[in-house]
């Protein structure tokens, strides 16, 4: 239609602007620019800067120079770094497994008909709503060596004789911060799994009842398999959040006692900001990337649509 130069006089001249206006590729690109800029400025730039810093020996107040993998060689010899890796893995694995178990259990309960259902669901969401710093401070108090309400209650019940030193002993402190993390993370798991449960048609359970399935068999053969796609999503996110946790630990223990609760994120912060070694701190943070990447890869394969979800366009 728009043959330039040869179009008869009556044809309106198609300007470049008008033609671009009708070009889907150009429009698509145009609309993506704002989002692209956001991603570049707020995600790609900090990430790139972090990685770059990890390859330098910058300290606060002193420009550093490129030292290649020097920081990483140094960290490989650092037993505290390896302790933080161990702590992070322990923290992530134990907390995620328990969050999954309790969250699934809670979701199954909330999926039943019961009085005050809406209110109970709202209450379950509370830990998720409260700012983490606030709940961390509350836990800090709950775990206080002198005034812990848990110790107080257990003494009143006659179960123990003296206060428990929750945050003062290595393993106590690890268990305590894990418990706080579980408390904080369960709502996300429970509510998301509940949403997944509600997509399962009740007639499937009726059909299974008539087929002769017991409750346990229905859970194992129907509920759980149908829930696996959403479990993969939820647990990937849960693992990512837990692995990179910082706030809870920093408020409650600052990594103590004797670095027993130092996670990679807290150690990175301590070295980079508190200690001023931006390069080394960044290197620790960069060292988290392979772990997080493997979690994402796991989810990438876990999230792929199951074979039974494919095919068929109707419904």
């Amino acid at each position: 239609m728009a043959v330039i130069g040869e179009s008869p006089g009556r044809m309106p001249r198609v300007t470049l602007g008008a033609r671009l206006h009708n070009n889907n590729n150009f429009l698509g690109l145009l609309f993506m620019i704002p989002a692209g800029i956001m991603l570049l400025v707020f995600l790609a730039y900090p990430l790139g800067l972090g990685v770059w810093l990890g390859l330098t020996d910058v300290k606060i107040g002193r420009p550093g120079k490129f030292i290649g993998l020097g920081n990483f060689r140094w960290l490989a010899q650092d037993s505290l770094f390896w302790l933080s890796v161990f702590n992070t893995l322990l923290y992530t694995v134990v907390a995620s497994v328990i969050k999954f178990g309790l969250g699934l259990w809670l979701a199954l309960i909330l999926n039943k008909h019961m009085p005050f259902k809406a209110m109970i669901r709202a209450i379950v969401l509370l830990p998720f709503i409260v700012p983490t710093v606030l709940s961390a401070m509350a836990f800090w108090w709950i775990y206080d060596a002198q005034d812990s309400i848990i110790s107080f209650l257990l003494i009143q019940l006659g179960l123990i004789d003296s206060n428990i030193d929750f945050l003062g002993k290595a393993n106590n402190a690890r268990a305590s911060v894990i418990a706080a993390n579980i408390w904080r993370g369960i709502p996300f798991v429970a509510i998301t799994l509940l949403a997944g449960l509600q997509t399962i048609s009740p007639t499937l359970y009726e059909a299974a009842t008539i087929d002769g399935a017991t409750r346990m068999q229905m859970f194992r053969k129907i509920t759980f398999p149908l829930l696996t796609p959403i479990i993969a999503v939820v647990m990937t996110f849960s693992v990512l959040f837990t692995f990179s946790d910082f706030q809870l630990i920093w408020v409650m223990t600052r990594g103590g006692p004797f670095n027993a609760t130092h996670l990679m994120a807290t150690l990175a912060y301590q070295r980079a900001i508190v200690g001023g070694s931006l390069g080394e701190g960044s290197a620790i943070a960069v060292a988290m990337i392979p772990f997080l990447l493997s979690a994402i890869l796991f989810s990438y394969f876990g999230l792929q649509r199951r074979k039974w979800q494919q095919g068929g366009t109707d419904d």
Partner: peptide, 18 residues
Amino acid sequence: PKQRNIAMVFQNYALYPH
């Protein structure tokens, strides 16, 4: 139900999708 020796066909088929 399972001891009644009955079988039921549902409106939405109720086939196990997985």
